[in-house]
Design a protein around this nucleic acid. Sequence first.
DNA 1: AAATAAATTTAGATAAGGCTAAAAATAAAT
DNA 2: ATTTATTTTTAGCCTTATCTAAATTTATTT
Lengths: 218, 218
Amino acid sequence: MFSSSEENYLKAIYHLSLASTKGISTNAIANKLATKASSVTDMIKKLADKNMLVYKKYQGVTLTEKGKKTAANIIRKHRLWEVFLVEKLNFSWDEVHDVAEQLEHIKSPKLINEIDALLGFPKYDPHGDPIPDKNGALHQIEKSLLASLKIKEKGICVGVNDSSATFLQFLDKQGIALGKEVEVVDKEDFDNSMTIKINKKAITISNKIANNLYIQKL
Amino acid sequence: MFSSSEENYLKAIYHLSLASTKGISTNAIANKLATKASSVTDMIKKLADKNMLVYKKYQGVTLTEKGKKTAANIIRKHRLWEVFLVEKLNFSWDEVHDVAEQLEHIKSPKLINEIDALLGFPKYDPHGDPIPDKNGALHQIEKSLLASLKIKEKGICVGVNDSSATFLQFLDKQGIALGKEVEVVDKEDFDNSMTIKINKKAITISNKIANNLYIQKL
DNA sequence: AAATAAATTTAGATAAGGCTAAAAATAAAT
DNA sequence: ATTTATTTTTAGCCTTATCTAAATTTATTT
């Protein structure tokens, strides 16, 4: 059994591993968890003792298969709870993160399996992120950043790269939601801003926005 | 904000206070929480500093109004989660306690209010215990221990005094459930066992059983 | 009322998780 | 190839929540 703190480390390392093939550095973990490098060193020693990851001094860490599976299971719980909050409890997608962050640590296999069933075994969370299955496998769909689309290309909004409340609320205000169709109308070389058509209306968004919205090309 | 540990102390003291008019002793708390008296002394000092209870050395403790309200709110969460688990997630009444013990510490007013609404604002948990309202008020119904009924008296099962899995499973096996009608057919002076009629069948139960089942007299 | 028993508190330790500051190792730059 | 900068680790300390053992207070007996 793992403490909430250990689980948070595993989750952070798992997320960092997706974006890198090399070992994950102490500093990267410290940064992700808003903690200090010295604290990370202590914890990764502990997780290495528990065979959750491989650690060689000064070389960063790599999750073992057991570590990956454990982390994926926590992420599975987090994302299933997010779906539950939105689908059953009238939470909006910008309100779910902090609560799911607590709920993911509840220990009860039956609980999460029943939640999964109640929701009809969803495959994606409210932000478009895939929900790992019971074995920890992820079925990622083909998706591109909106920023990478060329003029005239069309696609469906399928996910966000930033789940902060401010960004999500901005999308709400602009009428941008998962499942909606967008078309790139124009791109500006100077600042990489782009004009897109969504809800039959043209709106202009900055490059920062376009770099945080995932599209499935049509 | 309170730690899970602080919340558990408040809850334990609240429960003990219901069964006693005097201050709650250090030992009683230690016993309830399966911890040591010295640990209790430390914690009640901390809770006294936070104005949750009044503590005078060697004299036991009494919850303040704030302490009562805080404790009632935790119990409210516990019991609402129990109802949720039984009503929505196919848990049986002997499976809910440990999970609710974890869920009661989740911090999110919106979460528990939405759960309450989803369940239709229930007034009792699966064991027949009343759910405190948002102000911490309990609406206890009139109930008696089955052991106190005389021969020929009838009533409806409305609660249990012991929520352990073994006791609840025993009740299941005997076909005893909340809402069912029982009649005392006979009582044995020697061991205080009694024969009751339930589900149109007569069964004999020990005094220990009869002392853990609450009845609303008819 | 004094002596014994029981309950409670204090003192000192421990473990988990985190921090700061200093030391050591690795990486980058001249 | 040294020097400098950055990263990582170690060492020592803090807090929370425990515990054991000893000391103290209250309760109970004789």
